[in-house]
């Protein structure tokens, strides 16, 4: 399992465009956003947060567009299916490695942007945590959508996963507005944590089932 994870990480690190590309796109959009505003207007919390969430979601969709297609096309997915370990281990190795290389940098960059854009007093740690959790959930679901639309372009997967992600976005929004009003937001954070704890272990099984159908 750990060996498998290092192999996936190795493959990904060596293929720069699969993670450095999306990260640079993210930075470019971050730069572009303030350009559309006057220099002295202060961003509102709500807008900045929604912007960051939606952009993270889009960048993650972009970066996971071909995660399974490559392995499927060159036949190494078949080999993984026939090996002695569980097929879902292979999927979770892929998810973990792309969370490490894409999800965590994205969260950190969003957090840094937040520091520069709006004055944060009491939300520092929580906003970072919410970015990490939401990106983890996004990555899991994007992998799911990607597995469904393996060879058919990303549009199909997008159609399926985006509705699934609406509740997560709503929870994020509710958490933010509760925090801005000075109310207790820990229950929303726990809800988010619950979502990621459910999707983390469960998704690899669902995805591997779908991939098996594709391989038939």
């Amino acid at each position: 399992m750990i060996r498998l994870f290092f192999k996936e990480l190795f493959k990904m690190v060596r293929q720069l465009r699969s993670w450095l590309g999306p990260l640079s796109v993210f930075v470019l959009i971050l730069v572009a956003f303030p350009l559309t505003q006057d220099i002295d207007t202060k961003f509102s919390h709500q807008t900045t947060f929604s912007f960051l969430w939606i952009i993270s979601l889009l960048v993650i969709m972009l970066s996971t567009e071909k995660v399974f297609l490559e392995d499927f096309d060159d036949g190494s997915m078949e080999q993984h299916l026939l090996k002695s370990y569980n097929f879902s281990d292979y999927v979770s190795a892929k998810v973990t490695s792309s969370f490490l290389l894409i999800g965590i940098p994205l969260s950190c960059m969003s957090w840094l942007f937040l520091q520069s854009a709006v004055a944060m007093t009491n939300l520092n740690l929580v906003s970072l945590l919410s970015f990490l959790l939401s990106n983890f959930i996004f990555i899991n679901f994007c992998f799911f959508g990607n597995a469904v639309s393996l060879k058919r372009g990303s549009l199909l997967g997008l159609l399926i996963i985006t509705p699934l992600l609406f509740p997560v976005l709503i929870i994020l929004g509710k958490m933010l507005s509760a925090a801005l009003l000075g109310l207790d937001y820990s229950n929303f954070l726990l809800l988010l944590l619950g979502c990621s704890l459910i999707s983390g272990p469960l998704m690899p099984f669902v995805i591997s089932y779908i991939l098996k159908i594709h391989l038939e």
């Binding site: 060159d74 036949g75 078949e78 080999q79 002695s84």
Partner: peptide, 19 residues
């Protein structure tokens, strides 16, 4: 299957072309 008792090679080679 899955106990290193067999080996399979299909049309596709299972190689990473960028490595």
């Amino acid at each position: 299957f899955g106990e290193k008792e067999f080996e399979f090679l299909g049309h596709k080679n299972g190689l990473k072309t960028y490595l």
